[in-house]
């Protein structure tokens, strides 16, 4: 019996329909795009200030901005870079937004694999559960890093600190541990097909992938904790993490990425704007 004798001809589905069939990851990409727009909007509308000191973020944050007068209000501190405990929750929300914009697109191969290898009615659910676990790890990472910033009070020496962080991240790029983390975060196993076990497995897979990803890209992302308003740096680091996560042979190019980070560290040290 041949295949053609069983399958009857059917009208060709529309291109959009076929596109949605084979690209379930579009929902995750859409979330990332919306988050990018939000972050960009905040950067564009933020009141800026000289040197490393500036503040973007929430409208009501503008009134707390380093003593500068913004929109008629007195701005005495930047909530994206917490200098007081009360800033911390807002800083964390802003960090999660930035991490979502920068890191979620790098999960496209993983969420696509999970969606395509799971039950059809779970395609989006599985992706979102994975993203929840993944971003949960990045949120925890941000909480720890912001806490460290709060404790250490680096606001007055942002540029040197960012420069040192980027130099450290450059050195991390060429370590074996980095290579292993990067290889590990390219792998996603098969998950249970249905039920709560599938839900749990999706979250666990997201957490595991997030841990591997923070191991691979965490050092460079610390720079964004200290300099959250440096849009150019955000775009540059986004390009590097996307390349590392999406290029199949990215491991072979780690020295090149290290050189890019080292060069950036020098540029920052010589006074590149971080706000």
């Amino acid at each position: 019996m041949t295949v053609s004798s069983v399958a009857r001809p059917v009208p060709r589905p529309s291109a959009w329909r076929r596109w949605r069939w084979i690209h379930p990851e579009l929902s995750v990409l859409a979330v990332a795009v919306v988050t990018w727009l939000w972050v960009l909007t905040l950067h564009v509308t933020m009141p800026s200030h000289g040197g490393a000191l500036h503040c973007s973020m929430l409208p009501n944050a503008a009134v707390h901005h380093h003593g500068a007068m913004v929109q008629g209000a007195s701005v005495d501190r930047c909530v994206a870079l917490p200098s007081e405990v009360s800033d911390f929750p807002v800083s964390l929300v802003l960090w999660v937004g930035m991490a979502t914009a920068m890191m979620l697109p790098t999960t496209v191969p993983a969420v696509r694999s999970i969606a395509m290898n799971g039950r059809w009615n779970r395609r989006h659910r599985s992706q979102m559960l994975f993203a929840f676990g993944y971003l949960g790890v990045w949120s925890a990472f941000g909480a720890v890093a912001l806490g460290a910033v709060l404790v250490l009070g680096v606001e007055a020496v942002v540029a040197p600190v960012v420069s040192v962080i980027l130099a450290t991240a450059a050195a991390w790029e060429v370590t074996r541990r980095k290579r292993l983390f990067l290889r590990a975060c390219h792998r996603v196993g098969s998950l249970p097909a249905d039920g709560r076990r599938a839900d749990r497995a999706c979250v666990v897979a997201g957490v595991r992938n997030g841990l591997q990803c923070t191991g691979a890209c965490g050092p460079m992302m610390v720079a964004m904790v200290v300099a959250p308003h440096a849009l150019w740096l955000m775009v540059l680091l986004f390009g590097i993490v996307v390349a590392e996560k999406l290029l199949t042979k990215a491991v072979d190019h780690l020295p090149m990425f290290a050189a890019m980070l080292a060069t950036t560290a020098v540029i920052v040290a010589f006074g590149a704007p971080l706000g």
Partner: peptide, 18 residues
């Protein structure tokens, strides 16, 4: 030899071991 062209739809999981 099968003769049917590749379908437009992707393969769909209908069952898996747990």
């Amino acid at each position: 030899m099968p003769t049917a062209p590749a379908p437009q739809n992707p393969p769909e999981l209908v069952g898996a071991s747990d």
